[in-house]
Every structure is written in structure tokens, then in C-alpha cells.
């Protein structure tokens, strides 16, 4: 039972009900270097089925690196990452399989500017999931309906506002019917008045039971939606807990300092 020590950190703050669910993402001692700089210093964390986990921390703390490792946009060098029962290794087939199960939303949206909104959404379902075009388009329109912009289907990303673009990006990820959604600071590049329209979509998703890992600075969102909050600094997980514990009664000094600076 040598894993007990690490599991205790990884499972911290879980209710009994949450702890009883299946593990969807398991990070076990994940380390990552960029050249000489160590971005992740042995991260242990477990994300449960239908859990919403919010990752907080100052910039440069390794939050983005962590979730980019989960769908292997970055390769970790030590430790293990297991997503939906498949371990991430250099085997390309595993990576493609995991990427089609894990949706990702980026800070800069990264929509394909030469394709219409509809084509942005249907491209991967048609070519990766091998869906028929009509079926993919029908699903895409449902998703656009869900994120509230069905009337923009024939436009190009450059013709939309930032908030609309990010909602298209979410729809594009959802079109692959992922089991897990990763959000990498989805509202950081948005004008303030557009943030809520994106957060509303994310809240809906959370309510419908999507497993989500969100890197964000939106404390209100974290407080309202998160099952657990992970606080990172300098590539380490400092504290894990429920929103209530985290915002009202943090144990670590660094967490208190961070909260005092941003709240």
C-alpha cells in the first residue's frame, strides 16, 4: 500500500459519494521539464466521473501545463497519466484514442479561420468519427442551439465576437461527444461583458454531468460549479478541497495569500 500516501493528497476533499465513483483521470507523480525549468514537480490528482474540478493558481504555476499533459499536447517525462483507463505513452494509437475522448477549449479559441462555423464543428466528426455529413450537420446545429448561436452557422469565425467564438469552440469540442472536457483559461482572452455568456454554457455542461477540468480565474464560477478546487503553485499541488473549504477555511498559507490577493 505504498500508494496510500499519494492517494491521500489526490483524494483530498472528496465526499464519500464522489470517492465511490470511477476514476476518469489519474495523475500519478507527473513531472515535466521545459529545458532546465521544471514545470510540474510530481503532481498527484484523481478526477472522478462527472466531477467538475477547477484548477487555480498564480501564473506560471503549471496549471495549463497539467491539463495540456492530460491530452498530451505536452508530453510528461516522469510519472503516469491514465485517462479513461488508457495510459498516455508514446504509442500514437493511444494518443489518438484519448484525444478523441477528451475535448479541449483553448484561451485563444483556436477556431479554424478558413472554415465556416458549421464546418469547424463538423470536420472532426466527419473525418475522425466517420459520421455522415448530414448527421454531423444535424448534431452541429443542435450544439449551436445549445450554446445559443444557431444563426451564426454559415459565418466565418472572424465575423464573430470573442464570446461567440469561444462558444463555437465549445460546440466544436462537444461535437466529438467527449467523455471529458478540458478548459484552459476559456475566458481570459474575452472582453468582460462576454465572459458570462461563456461561463453560462460551461455551467450548463457541468449541470448535465460532464466531467470537466477547468483552469480559470473566475472565482465565482469556481465557487458555484466546482466539486473540488485544486490550488497549484510552482508545479506542485498545494491544496485540494471543496469550494466551501477552499474559500472559507483554507489551511495552507500560500492559498490564503493567493486568495487575499485576488478576492
Amino acid at each position: 500500500m505504498s500508494q496510500d500516501a499519494s492517494m491521500s493528497i489526490a483524494d483530498a476533499g472528496m465526499s464519500a459519494e464522489l470517492a465511490a465513483r470511477d476514476d476518469v483521470i489519474v495523475c500519478d507523480g507527473v513531472k515535466k521539464w521545459f529545458g532546465d525549468f521544471q514545470a510540474l514537480r510530481g503532481v498527484d490528482v484523481t478526477v472522478k466521473d462527472r466531477e467538475v474540478m477547477v484548477v487555480l493558481g498564480p501564473s506560471g504555476s503549471g496549471k495549463s501545463t497539467l491539463i495540456r499533459c492530460i491530452n498530451r499536447l505536452e508530453a510528461h517525462q516522469e510519472g503516469r497519466i491514465i485517462v479513461d483507463g488508457i495510459e498516455l505513452t508514446n504509442d500514437l494509437r493511444n494518443i489518438d484514442k484519448i484525444r478523441s475522448e477528451v475535448g479541449m477549449v483553448f484561451q485563444q479559441f483556436n477556431l479554424f479561420p478558413h472554415l465556416t462555423v458549421l464546418d469547424n464543428i463538423t470536420l472532426a466528426p466527419i473525418w475522425v468519427r466517420k459520421k455522415a455529413r448530414s448527421e454531423a450537420e444535424k448534431r452541429a446545429m443542435e450544439l449551436l442551439e445549445r450554446v445559443g448561436i444557431p444563426e451564426q452557422a454559415e459565418k466565418y469565425p472572424g465575423q464573430l465576437s470573442g464570446g461567440q467564438q469561444q462558444r463555437v469552440a465549445i460546440a466544436r469540442s462537444l461535437a466529438m461527444e467527449p467523455k471529458i472536457m478540458l478548459f484552459d483559461e476559456p475566458t481570459s482572452a474575452l472582453d468582460p461583458e462576454m465572459i458570462s455568456e461563456v461561463l453560462d454554457v460551461m455551467k450548463d455542461l457541468a449541470r448535465e454531468g460532464m466531467t470537466m477540468v477547468c483552469v480559470t480565474h473566475e472565482m465565482g464560477f469556481a465557487r458555484e460549479v466546482a466539486d473540488r478546487i485544486v490550488f497549484m503553485e510552482s508545479g506542485d499541488i498545494v491544496e485540494v478541497g471543496t469550494p466551501e473549504h477552499f474559500f472559507t477555511n483554507p489551511t495552507e498559507d500560500r492559498t490564503k495569500l493567493f486568495l487575499s490577493q485576488i478576492l
Partner: peptide, 16 residues
Amino acid sequence: RGQFEASDALGLTTVQ
């Protein structure tokens, strides 16, 4: 780079 990352995240193959 974001274009490459977005394509990869959607599971497109290199050829696609």
C-alpha cells in the same frame, strides 16, 4: 501553433 493544437486536440491525424 494554436491551429496545430486544436487539430490535435480534436483527434485529427497528421494527414487530415
